[in-house]
Nucleic acid binder design. Sequence first.
DNA 1: CGGGAATTACT
DNA 2: AAGTAATTCCC
Length: 956
Amino acid sequence: MNQQQFFDLDQGKNISYMNDCSSTSGYSSANSPISMTQSPSHSPETFALQNEFANLNLPAMSNSPSPQLQQLRGSPYQQPLIVNQLLPSGNLCMEIDGGSNNILNGNTNFGNMYMPMDHFYATPQNVGYAANDGGVKQEYTAVLHIAEQPVEKFRFRYKSEMHGTHGSLNGINSKRTPKTFPEVILRNYNGPAVIRCSLFQTNLDSPHSHQLVVRKDERDVCDPHDLRVSQERGYVAQFINMGIIHTAKKFIFDELLKKKKDRLVFKMGRRELSTKQVQELHQETEREAKDMNLNQVRLCFEAFKIEDNQTWTPIAAPVYSNPINNRKSAQTGELRITRLSKPTGSVMGNDELILLVEKVSKKNIKVRFFEENDDGETVWEAYAKFRESDVHHQYAIVCQTPPYKDKDVEREVGVSIELIRPSDDERSFPPLPFRYKPRDAIVSRKRRRTCSTLTSSSSGSSSGSLNNSVELPKTVPQQGVANVSQHDQTISQEFGREFHLEQLINPESFRKILEQDSAELEKLCVTDIGVLETDGQQQSESADRTHGSRYNRNLTSTYLGEIFKIFDTARRAVDNKELYQSSCKKVENLFTDHAQKNVNNDTLLHEVISQRKDNLKLAIKTFQVIDYFKLRELAHTAQNADGDSCLHVACQQDREHYIRPLLGLGCSPNQQNLTGNTPLHLAVKEDRNNCIKLFLDAPGAKLDLSLTNDDGLTPLHMAIRQNKYDVAKNLINYDRNSINVANTTDGNNALHMAVLEQNVELIVLILDAENRMDILMSRNSAGLTPLQLARAKANDRCVRLLEEVYPDKGECAMTWIPLNIKEEMDSSSAEDDEESNSEVPAQSIKTEEIEMEFKTECADEDSTMDDSDVEQQLEQLLSSKPRFDKLVAQLNEPTADNANLPKWKEIADKSDLKEFTWLWSSSEGMLNYIQHKSGDKQYKQFALALQELGMLSASN
DNA sequence: CGGGAATTACT
DNA sequence: AAGTAATTCCC
């Protein structure tokens, strides 16, 4: 018996043992029956070798690796010979996978190109695999049980990476300490046995071309790995220190074939496969290799008993581990959101959100928003909107948030975001929090509500005397109602019965109300104003204070009451001009004073139109005051801390009936708030269709639809992005030029954006508008026309639709725009791109002028042009639209020699332009291209070629 | 150990 | 020619 050392997987270290059994490893020992084998072609020579090795049978192998051993590591492909020499170690086998197995496999790696090893196995006696070859199901009493699954994600390393160590394949429950490893238990069996672990495909009962290696003596030995188990050890086999080598693509087939052969040979207990078998194996391998999942493997565990030291008999059905995924791959790697561009968004959705993510594949990724209750049940989910092209380089996703389920939430709602990979339903972890913010409308309403309470100055109870000693009228809601409850169509059940909605919507009638001072209004003005803001919250808050009878009127009520008092007084003293003047001043001061004190600087007007319960009476009276004292400037400039005007608030709160009165009072419809939004932006954003309509229909309001908000969008852009056809239609009808405005984020105009939405109706709508040419030709920041964008990112239907309308089927849009068109564009649209400032001559000369000049010039010169003249001539030719077109036509004609070869192609083929020819389908493309090359070689060449063809003069 | 990056190879 | 995937490098 030799004392030997080997690496014990169980113990994770080298140990020595008495070599009392010479070879357990199935593949390994020279005597072993099954040998691995042979590459299709082996050199016959080496029986001798085999014996030699067999005899080598050494003890050494482990601790003191021979120089060759050391050389060997990590290079099975390259150093087969050395590998062969190691073979003997296989005899050590037993506890750990015999080194020999691996070595053999290593050998197999080389395919036929290397030293064949078949002779090793040529020994006749070693046949003994008792397995169930004929495919007969065999009943086993023993059972393999996986006690510890491998981790589900692991980075597969390429062989070239297998230098140092890179961490081993741990058990799924492994922690820093204690670590665990894949582990199986053999049950229902007595006596010694060997458990084998090898790498398998996940969807086939077939080995995987990757290598399951275990680091041993500075080298990586490949699977299968055999571990001896016994009663003393509790029949537990723990596979320690394994790694997975990612077989390079080019070796997949070879590796797989090798493994399959080895397996078959082992199973058959024979040393040679029949030619037929080899062929079959070949074909089978070819098939498998083609679509083998290279990023997923599983472990296969088998159990054998070894009889006569030679015969390996399976004693239990093989079991397979869960899949192990390659951590590095985009298909199976971990999904992770690294960062969000912002943590919040509107409940309305459609906010742009950028996610930085770990490697994802754009075709296989979704962004899921979801909300769970305390029990972890999903109560809501929605997916962000984005296109494949919004996935930037596998590492970022630009998406639009989905709307939240409840658009009327009053406070922020916390939800989660995760990535989902549909192919395997993998989720990113952990989910990232995201907060849905209530709509501005609700926020401001709430803010107003709470702040009025907060800021209300303390004062006496029901008498309501405050700092400024304003006596607020005691208000009993019913009073107001009692007088006038004759109409049915009313806005506000409690307070507004006197006014029909339509009256207010209609500016004429509203004006009348204001100006004529109708009896109704008169009555209104002398009666008490309604109760301000008595919503539940305030009531409960006030209830808290009631105990000390310290119920307060809020700030707004106070000021409003004071102002109304002044107003009423002044009005009664009709002829008192002085009183009127001073009243003006007072009211103005109160107005501004209030705004200053009020939280968020909401003015009285803001407050009055955004009461939780719409209070028409109150609002109208306030309007009347403003109007009466000619304080339009106040209304006009009234902005709160968010930069919101009253119109903004009206839109937020969906109080469309105030829009016209406010416009009438001088509020500017084009005022932008601090985020750049006009009231119309808000109306679109918040889906306030009535507001939108009123804005657009308002006679005096001159809306500027080209204003962009901080997201770079006009109202039309927003509508398109939200696929709001009707809104977009109304906006376009209001101002057709608005479709040409480019958003300042990516330079897309309305058509670009509709294309991105792939919304055919919108595209048609836009195309039906006028100014078609401008919009067709305008380019976004990426330099793309709508058609080009469609080709890149939209479906066929959109592309076809657009191709229909481009005059030349989009030919010119594929490449460059003729200068003259571009000049038109430059002057007519906000769009600008780099091209336009580069080549275009600064002086834009009228087409006719060029023609004139050109004619005269050409008349003089003719055959005597030098190179620069030729170029100049070409340049002028290209810069005139008629000439350009003419040249296009001429060049599209076939050449004299070949009816199938247009002239332009001929020129291209003969010049440096050859390699670009594929770009163009007619001469126009080439001309567009060449005109931007002014001054360089291609341009000159082209000019000369034209001259040669006589085209330069011909085109005169 | 574990991971990011760079490089190269394919579409 | 751009964008991914595959490999290799290297901190």
